[in-house]
């Protein structure tokens, strides 16, 4: 039973990790926290559902969905974020992404109604624990491939440069705007992965990603908001903690279930303010 619960925790954690990574990616490239990341993932999941419902096999629908999500993310950056980035103060981008949250959620409910829908699992015939592990493995593969691209290609180098220091990147001739759009595209694609992984067990409906977004934020903060591997580690930790503590700690009823990852975060941040993997701010002496 413990191992099954651990597997379930890892499966859920992989979903939270993907959305946390999406948050961090969007943040690294534009300095903006995208509150609509979960809803964009939701929209992508609905698109995937629609494709499968119209007859496309699951493993064909998946890459199409990721491509659609990538494009949507790029468009969002171009059309919306580019405009509000330069507005003074941190409030305009926040308001913009919250507005986007409301808009995308309403759009999904309008097109697909609020009826509950089943979403196919990537491994429908496997027993529950194994399916969760396999889903986590799938996520690991995709994220690993993404990491490879980022680490070992010229494009990845440019993206890492922009994420590290956009101004120096500009002065080096890098078209930061295009790279930011790519970064948001990648974030959106990773978010789509999150939705697709979680939908089979959460069931697809317009409120599906709301709770997930909260956990993804927790995971991203836990890992240090500017660290990609931190977000992934944070997501897995939150997923496993949430599942195991809900199952095993009798005194932790559901009332406290969300508290456990949050207490963990506070403890980590007290000891290590930049999060588990985040970069310490460099201070000039």
């Amino acid at each position: 039973m413990f191992f099954q619960q651990l597997a379930e925790g890892l499966g859920a954690g992989a979903g939270y990790a993907a959305l946390a990574l999406a948050l961090v990616l969007a943040y690294r490239f534009t300095g903006i926290v995208n509150f609509a990341q979960g809803e964009l993932a939701l929209l992508a999941t609905y698109v995937a559902w629609q494709l499968v419902d119209s007859g496309l096999p699951y493993w064909a629908a998946l890459p199409v969905t990721v491509a659609v999500a990538f494009t949507a993310g790029m468009l969002t950056e171009r059309v919306l974020i580019r405009r509000v980035e330069s507005a003074p103060g941190p409030i305009s981008p926040v308001v913009a992404t919250i507005g986007l949250y409301v808009l995308v959620n309403a759009l999904a409910a309008l097109v697909w109604s609020s009826a509950l829908r089943a979403f196919p699992s990537p491994f429908p015939d496997a027993p529950a624990g194994l399916a969760a592990l396999a889903a986590a493995g799938l996520a690991g593969l995709v994220l690993g491939a993404l990491a490879l691209v980022v680490r070992h290609t010229g494009l990845g180098l440019v993206m890492r440069a922009v994420a590290a220091d956009p101004r120096t990147a500009r002065l080096s001739g890098i078209r930061v705007g295009q790279v930011a759009a790519l970064g948001w595209g990648a974030a959106s694609a990773v978010g789509a992965l999150s939705g697709v992984l979680l939908a089979p067990s959460l069931f697809l409906e317009p409120a599906m990603m709301t709770g997930v977004l909260v956990y993804a934020f927790a995971a991203a903060v836990l890992g240090g908001f500017d660290s990609a591997p931190g977000a992934v580690a944070g997501g897995l930790i939150v997923g496993v903690t949430e599942t195991l503590c809900g199952t095993y700690l009798a005194f932790v009823g559901a009332d406290l279930k969300i508290a456990v990852p949050l207490v963990l975060i506070v403890a980590v941040l007290l000891l290590r303010p930049r999060g588990l993997f985040g970069t310490a701010p460099v201070e000039r002496a």
Binding site: R160, A161, A164, D165, T168, L171
Partner: peptide
């Protein structure tokens, strides 16, 4: 510039490449 001109998380080699 006075302040920067390098990408702190990238290696020296990667910095020179960009």
């Amino acid at each position: 510039t006075q302040e920067g001109g390098t990408f702190a998380p990238l290696t020296v080699r990667e910095n020179l490449r960009v």
